[in-house]
Computed example of a mutant assay.
Amino acid sequence: MHEDSDDFPVFDIKELKWDTETTETGEIHDIGIEERTIQSLGEIVAIADKHNMSVNIKECVLMEVQIDSAHIDISFNKSIFKEKIHFKSGVFNGKLNFWVSTFEEEADFSGAIFKEDIDFKDCTFHKEVNFFGTTFEKKAAFAFCDFKGETAFNGASFKEEVDFSGSTFRKKAIYNEAIFKKAVNLSRTLFEESLEIMGSNLPDMSQKEKEQTTQFNLSHELDKVFKKEVSRRQILRGLFRFLPEDREK
């Protein structure tokens, strides 16, 4: 994220007028917004939905986020959500990506239905996250996330594969009555406080990779270093944990 993100100019909804016009070939441009402060995402999504345009938001600061439904693909890349976000009880027919984004307040996805893939890879959640009763009809990815507040997936339904690998749940994680239809990747997932799974089939569907079979991916490790502020000592510790043990000792 850009160091001066607090000084990003405010995005004016009137700027979309050129994007909503058709080109000479009859095609409609998608909406791309970068390094701006977005006061109301709902208006942008409504316009994009009307014209069947995907929305690509990169390194932006988002204030009010309340979306009831969308039929389009929406991506948030390295963005910051400053206020509580509401996707509650909405129906989303397109793909949603929140890659490397930060949620500073509560995030409410309870009761929502996601009909396509949803990806929260490498996100940071500072407050509570609520997926109570949420339905994931396609793949759901929560890999390498940092959940600092209480996280609720109770009553959620996962119909395809789910990836929680490398994530850390620092407070209570609730999966009571959550149902998983396919495999769940919990490789190197940490539950630091407590994990509730009453009535859930999570233990039966989870796949934990054994430490000795973990494959070291240099490009992935370096990519994580650039995304986060990591000291040189931490980098070395992270790399050396993948080196094979000296069997002669």
Rank of each mutant, 00 (worst) to 15 (best):
N154F: 01
A48C: 11
E34Y: 09
L222A: 10
T135F: 06
K139I: 00
E150W: 00
Q66M: 13
V184K: 09
H86K: 05
P9Y: 07
F240Q: 11
Q234N: 06
T213I: 06
A183N: 09
S40K: 06
I67N: 03
L202C: 03
F120A: 07
L186W: 00
G133H: 00
I85W: 15
L202D: 00
N56Q: 11
K171A: 04
E209K: 14
H126W: 05
A107F: 04
L195P: 14
L243V: 02
T213S: 13
I113W: 14
N97D: 11
I118E: 07
K139C: 01
F103T: 01
D19I: 02
I57Q: 11
S167Y: 07
F169C: 04
S231E: 07
H220G: 02
E160V: 03
E128R: 11
R36F: 06
L202W: 03
L16W: 07
H29E: 15
T151D: 13
K227V: 00
I179F: 12
H86G: 05
S157F: 06
E83W: 03
I74A: 10
K208L: 02
H29V: 07
N93L: 13
T135Y: 08
R241M: 04
S165E: 02
T213Q: 14
I31Y: 15
F136Q: 05
I28H: 15
M1V: 12
E106Q: 10
C123G: 09
R170C: 15
I72W: 12
H71M: 12
A152L: 02
K95W: 09
S200F: 02
T124A: 07
R237I: 01
K58M: 05
I197S: 08
G155Q: 02
S165Y: 02
G111R: 07
V230L: 15
K172P: 03
S194Y: 01
Q207L: 12
H29Q: 14
F103S: 05
I179C: 14
V230E: 15
F144A: 12
V184Y: 08
I67G: 05
L202K: 04
G90C: 04
F125D: 01
E177C: 00
E34A: 08
E150D: 00
S219L: 00
N77R: 08
G32S: 14
K227W: 06
L236I: 01
F87Q: 00
Q215G: 11
R170H: 14
K249R: 09
S54C: 14
E43S: 11
L222Q: 14
I179P: 06
E177V: 00
